[in-house]
Lab assay of single mutants.
Amino acid sequence: KNALMQLNEIKPGLQYTLLSQTGPVHAPLFVMSVEVNGQVFEGSGPTKKKAKLHAAEKALR
């Protein structure tokens, strides 16, 4: 199970927000955030999926 699945089991129905998309078309950088218990966690990556995963990993720490 990855961090997204684990976080969804603990806190179902979380909303992930796209904060920014920067970089060239062939190498974009997405920044996504998720709010858990009033705290906002951000993650970035080359795809929205990876950015969401990194945000979930930070939220689980």
Rank of each mutant, 00 (worst) to 15 (best):
K1Y: 06
K1I: 15
N2L: 03
A3H: 10
L4T: 09
L4N: 05
M5Q: 13
Q6G: 06
Q6L: 14
Q6R: 15
Q6A: 15
L7Q: 01
N8T: 07
N8E: 11
N8Y: 10
E9N: 14
E9C: 10
E9K: 15
I10E: 06
I10W: 13
I10G: 05
P12S: 07
L14N: 04
Y16L: 02
Y16Q: 03
Y16R: 00
T17H: 11
T17G: 05
T17R: 13
L18Y: 05
L18R: 04
L18F: 09
L18S: 04
L19C: 13
S20E: 11
S20Y: 09
S20N: 11
Q21I: 10
Q21K: 12
T22N: 10
T22S: 10
T22H: 08
T22R: 08
T22V: 08
G23Q: 05
G23V: 03
G23Y: 02
P24C: 10
P24S: 11
V25D: 14
V25E: 13
H26M: 07
A27P: 08
P28M: 05
P28I: 02
L29K: 14
F30C: 07
V31N: 09
V31C: 13
V31S: 12
V31L: 12
V31F: 09
M32E: 04
M32C: 10
V34W: 02
V34I: 07
E35S: 11
E35W: 05
V36A: 05
V36D: 01
V36Y: 06
V36F: 09
V36Q: 00
N37I: 03
G38V: 01
G38N: 07
G38W: 01
V40M: 12
V40K: 14
F41W: 04
F41D: 00
F41A: 03
G43L: 00
G43P: 00
G45R: 01
G45E: 00
P46T: 12
P46F: 09
T47P: 00
K48G: 03
K49H: 14
K49A: 13
K49M: 14
K49P: 07
K50G: 08
K50Q: 11
K50E: 15
K52V: 04
K52E: 05
K52L: 04
L53R: 04
H54L: 10
H54P: 03
H54A: 13
H54V: 13
A55L: 04
A55Y: 01
A55W: 00
A55Q: 00
A55F: 02
A55H: 00
A55P: 03
A56P: 00
A56E: 02
A56R: 03
A56H: 00
A56S: 04
E57W: 05
E57K: 11
K58P: 02
K58I: 13
A59I: 06
A59D: 00
L60I: 10
R61F: 11
